[in-house]
Design a protein around this nucleic acid. Structure first.
Lengths: 368, 368
DNA sequence: TTGAAAGCGCTAACAT
DNA sequence: ATGTTAGCGCTTTCAA
């Protein structure tokens, strides 16, 4: 007499109970507690329509068998949220993304929501596939750090029941909220500081300019030069996807120029690392600066100025915006049944947040 | 004449179509394609029982409306997998965990499965809650990096339909597969190298010894001392959760002892960072060594030996083991209907993999 | 080759 | 306060 729950020996259509025990269902609990499934449902959801006696009885049974309601069956019936959101990003191994994800997850948890993380390895094909997959999984929303400037495949998201928030890059060709960083201002300030310190030839290890961050950070570099009335030598400017190996090679090349730069700016954290390796290898006194914080930069024992911003906060804010969107665009149809275009819930346009950056200097002294 | 799909104006019980468009359902597609939902279902799953004509017609309609089947409705009906697994870990911001997660996600993707990441912040209470949540979300399996040695709350997982794999720490008090690192051997080798180099007083910034990794790494430290016939000075041994701030303070304290250690071993990556800061601050020539790789260690400009292992591979292997478990413990009842205990699929015991470690020396020279 | 019926686990709407 | 019925989106089974 195995008294295990989950075998649903409670009159089930398919033959009598020789299958392996799956998870217990609400009916199992109901049978064990001697009540109807509805009472179990009500008790679990805190519905007032159950007597204290019944509720206690049900909860005890639930505890005994370690029953957990099937969130998706519930969602299917109610049309409510699944309490899962998705985060689509390039590569979790980059400390910036990891920190970003931490912020997202914390806010999600505050909203009783879990996080599905999907890496694209910055490949558009992967991103497309991931997006499709996402929709099958009924997520409540998506936070995306786009891999490319092509966002056409993202138009299928963004329904009121599944809003999208763009992080680090604004949407291109569609309406959606975004939380980005002051890429332009940060780079302008950094580059301006180097120019003020007397540097006249500043190498730029840039990100692909087809991408928002790449183009903005380049604009900042160019604007600073313009302010100082200095013409940019195109040969000092390079662009790439942004990995450290490439940055190291490219920096090496710059340093071997007949007229090498006296300073180099790397447009992201990984490239800063690569550039530092190259400079060490070359043994030059080239001044290094970069975009993105590096939390062990103080240990590099080198003069290094970084444009920093709070990646955790960027993630947290993105998640907050996502939940705000869900809240405000909630489907609501008034009694009369006609689609009111005037007095409905405030149609809030997409949010477009910009986080400030801060220059931080590590090492012997600030770069001036 | 809005010809939008998703409003299910296809004879639906609740009044005729004034609700906002949700996602299109299979019935919507069926209606648009002029076939029954079953034909859509068959066409989408590649079931042979549909004519080419019908299939083409259906797939075209599906494409037109960007329809994606509801994975969870499917799962509910078939009892099949949800194609989502969960990864429960301490804190994604630690590069080790991030790299680990990357490995897990890659293998999961190879199995058409997505990853839900849940951070516990190394808190048992959080871990418990996360585990419960997990079960509601019908994940196909769980990879867990336990926050504490208390695994009692994990017994509810581990059914054949939702196996668990323990990573970095073997299960305590339950049967489950695990993929861990040779903590003992790695630390023994590292410590032995320092002892061979002549160090007689080696500080240990240890992890909490109640935890597997903490205790194993300590054992390695002790074993190396025993091998060299050197008695350990207990005052050089400390233990903690393993953050860099604490390690920095504690290292500072060790260095200020009347008889300070000539070398310090940090039991994880974050503590290595903290210890280095303290040594730099103190200006001593204390030799530093640590457990876990640090990918920018070459930039620290210090003699540093690390016990390394491939975190990505650790994650990948954990995921592989998870999928193996699912495969082999798949519910299978033969035609005759009797539970065969002898000729069924091989009842594979839990896997218990141990990944090797490798000593890597950064900086001027190896520590000997 | 196609469709109709039933039901996965759950809950809204209606009984009682 | 409790139970019954029906159906969320899908697929298995069975009938045509």
């Amino acid at each position: 007499m195995t008294d295990s729950v989950g075998s649903s020996d409670v009159r089930k259509k398919n033959s009598g109970g020789d299958h392996v025990a799956g998870r217990p269902t609400m009916r199992d609990i109901a049978a064990r507690a001697g009540v109807s499934p509805m009472s179990v449902s009500r008790a679990l959801r805190g519905d007032p329509g159950v007597s204290e006696t019944t509720r206690a009885q049900v909860l005890a049974t639930v505890k005994t068998y370690g029953y957990q309601p099937n969130e998706f069956a519930r969602q299917l019936r109610t049309g409510g949220p699944t309490h899962v959101i998705a985060l689509v990003l390039g590569h979790l191994a980059n400390p910036f993304y990891a920190q970003f994800a931490v912020g997202v997850e914390r806010v999600a948890a505050e909203h009783g929501t879990r996080l599905m993380i999907m890496s694209t390895n910055n490949d558009l094909g992967n991103e497309r596939q991931v997006i499709n997959d996402l929709r099958s999984h009924q997520v409540d929303g998506v936070i995306i750090v786009p891999a490319t400037p092509d966002h056409r495949h993202l138009t299928e998201l963004g329904s009121p029941s599944c809003p999208v928030v763009f992080a680090t890059t604004p949407p291109n060709g569609l309406e959606a909220s975004s939380v980005i960083v002051d890429d332009f201002g940060g780079m302008q300030e950094l580059c301006g500081q180097l120019l003020s310190a007397g540097h006249r030839r500043i190498g730029l290890l840039g990100l692909n300019r087809a991408m928002w961050t790449g183009s903005e950070r380049f604009r900042g570099y160019a604007a600073a030069h313009a302010e100082h009335g200095i013409r940019v030598d195109e040969r000092l400017i390079t662009e790439h996807a942004g990995d450290s190996g490439w940055a190291q090679r490219e920096t090496g090349r710059l340093l071997r120029l007949a007229d090498p730069p006296s300073a180099v700016i790397a447009a992201n954290n990984l490239m800063t690392i690569g550039a530092l390796r190259a400079i060490r290898q070359a043994g030059t006194t080239t001044v290094l600066a970069g975009f993105d914080d590096i939390d062990v930069a103080d240990l590099f024992q080198v003069q290094l100025t970084l444009v920093t911003f709070n990646a955790d906060q960027l993630g947290a804010r993105s998640a907050e915006v996502l939940f705000e969107q869900r809240g405000h665009t909630a489907v609501r149809v008034d009694q009369s049944g006609d689609a009111d275009q005037t007095n409905g819930p405030q149609v809030r346009g997409p949010v477009r947040d910009v986080l400030p950056t801060k220059l931080v200097s590590y090492g012997d002294s600030p770069a001036h």
